[in-house]
Design a protein around this nucleic acid. Structure first.
Length: 465
RNA sequence: GGCGACGUGGCCAAGCGGCUAAGGCAAGGGUCUGCAAAACCCUGAUCAUGGGUUCAAAUCCCAUCGUCGCCUCCA
């Protein structure tokens, strides 16, 4: 059994081999914290959380770094508009995002570096690049010299010539080449700044990730991830900087998730068509967003709609159904029944691993879990004893847990619980007296309020819809 | 204009050269139930279109149509 991962750099699925046996160093680009995070950010975090969980399931020790860009034009602009300190603003959004991730059941990254705390490393790196001739200062800025990097463009598959032809940005004529990008930017008055050999300034966007990688994970890492909108220029530039400095291949596997689309177009801050994580979670469960992502391939664009959310909630209900206890009057399974369940347990586990090993094919993995759901429910209906369901249910929890699903019922209106139970008890009395019309009215009215009643042989259960 | 991705049953979507094209949602029929619900059983697609390669293609190649992303410090 070998794990294969699609590598953006080679455009192929490759066998996963770590630099250090049994250990994975993974760096994922986190958000620029100038606003509330939306579910597109959540998608990226969830994708790499799932990857990390699976790698750990496969026995790897994962060092997972996710950064925050907390020094940036947009943050400064936003802070000025609000009359706030840019660092305070960034700090606030970082705290919010971390809360979001926790609510989404995303495992905390091993290290969470921020640009503002890596300034020494950044300056050292820029200086080293200048000394090696890969960068040049210009009026307090420092630019990376793309012409000096002969394989510039290898990640995104672009050639410098082609890009120049299509460059529409206003070109700074002082730069040696229009594609040269800033490693260090001179500060304007009133902007956050640090002292450097080139005067007061702050880091450019791409250099921070290179520096943080170098500092926290080393010169070479196994996996570098992020949204596919970061392939160019961000990751391309990271490669240029880091490899020019170290002379070694930077990341072995470049992994990029597809964009979440709201309707027909990408969800993004600049377009304004977004749903914040906070908004999503106020209406829906964390599991449902994760399920939506699991149901598709992480590399493809993902269509988000209300219908998709509804489908996800229903599918989760089905997953939960397999965890229900055995029937009270269960008499035990036949030998054939036991064998069938055991066979499905083995098939599901093997199928799960096979699917996940194939570039984290979560949709395929889910299908094997659903087959297990059917087998468990079948066994229960056939009178399986609790002990006979135990193994299969344990596997259910193991596999769904590996994907990061909690399978917990939505908990809302906890205060109303005793009153609902009261109505349920009264209705049971009505049914005993065969006052069915009244009993049905109670059930229907509760359903209108979002409470689903289910009558079983051993009593009535209820849950929020 | 350049680079790239994608178009599979009503919906979301796996599969990417060869077993009967996964799975979920929705729909229809049935079992169970006072009736429902849940659960269980049963039912449906030849894979955008047109060519081509091959003994064999949803899977490879070409063209056409359509959708989307990147080329702008957006995950």
């Amino acid at each position: 059994m070998t794990l294969k991962i699609y590598n953006t750099l080679t455009r192929k699925k490759e066998v996963f081999e770590t630099i250090e046996p049994g250990k994975v160093r993974m760096y994922v680009c986190g958000p620029t914290v100038y606003d509330k995070a939306h579910i597109g950010h959540a998608m990226s975090a969830l994708v790499f959380d799932i990857i990390r969980r699976y790698l750990e399931y496969r026995g790897y020790e994962v060092k997972h770094a996710m950064n925050f860009t907390d020094v940036d034009d947009k943050i400064i602009k936003r802070a000025q508009a609000l009359g706030k300190d840019p660092f305070e603003l960034a700090e606030m959004y970082i705290a919010e995002f971390e809360k979001n991730l926790q609510d989404l059941n995303v495992l905390p990254p091993t290290v969470k570096p921020r640009a503002s705390r890596e300034i020494d490393q950044i300056i050292q790196m820029v200086q080293a690049l200048v000394e090696k001739g890969f960068a040049y200062p210009l009026n307090g800025d420092v630019y990376f010299r793309v012409r000096k990097d002969e394989d510039y463009g290898k990640l995104s598959g672009r050639r410098l010539e082609e890009m120049q032809a299509g460059a529409r940005i206003e070109v700074d004529e002082r730069k040696e080449d229009p594609m040269d990008f800033a490693l260090w930017k001179a500060a304007k008055p009133g902007e956050p700044a640090w002292d450097s050999p080139w005067g007061a300034g702050r880091p450019g966007w791409h250099i921070e990730c290179s520096a943080m990688n170098l500092h926290h994970l080393g010169e070479q890492i196994d996996i570098h991830g992020g949204g596919n909108d970061l392939i160019f220029p961000h990751h391309e530039n990271e490669i240029a900087q880091t490899e020019s400095l170290t002379g070694k291949p930077f990341a072995r596997y470049w992994v990029h998730n597809g964009m979440l689309q709201l309707g027909e177009v990408k969800m993004s801050k600049s377009l304004g068509n977004l749903i914040t994580i906070e908004e999503y979670l106020s209406e829906h469960s964390a599991d449902s967003l994760r399920y939506i992502i699991l149901n598709a391939s992480y590399r493809s664009p993902l269509i988000y709609s209300d219908e998709v959310v509804a489908q996800a909630e229903k599918a989760l209900e089905r997953l939960r159904s397999a965890l229900r206890p055995a029937l009270p009057e269960a008499k035990g399974l036949s030998e054939e029944g036991k064998r069938a369940l055991q066979q499905q347990v083995e098939a599901s586990k093997a199928g799960f691993v096979e699917a996940m090993d194939d570039d984290f094919n979560t949709a395929g993995a889910l299908s094997h879990i659903f087959e297990l759901v059917r087998a468990v429910n079948q066994a229960r209906a056939d009178g399986a004893l609790p002990a006979e369901l135990e193994g299969a249910q344990a596997l259910m929890r193991e596999l769904t847990g590996t994907l990061g699903l909690t399978l917990q019922e939505a908990q809302k209106g906890g205060d109303a619980d005793p009153f609902i139970q009261l109505l349920v008890d009264l209705r049971l009395e009505l049914r005993k007296q065969k006052l069915y019309a009244l009993a049905d009215t109670v059930r229907n009215r509760l359903a209108e309020l979002g409470v689903i009643l289910e009558d079983t042989r051993e009593g009535t259960t209820w849950r929020w819809s």
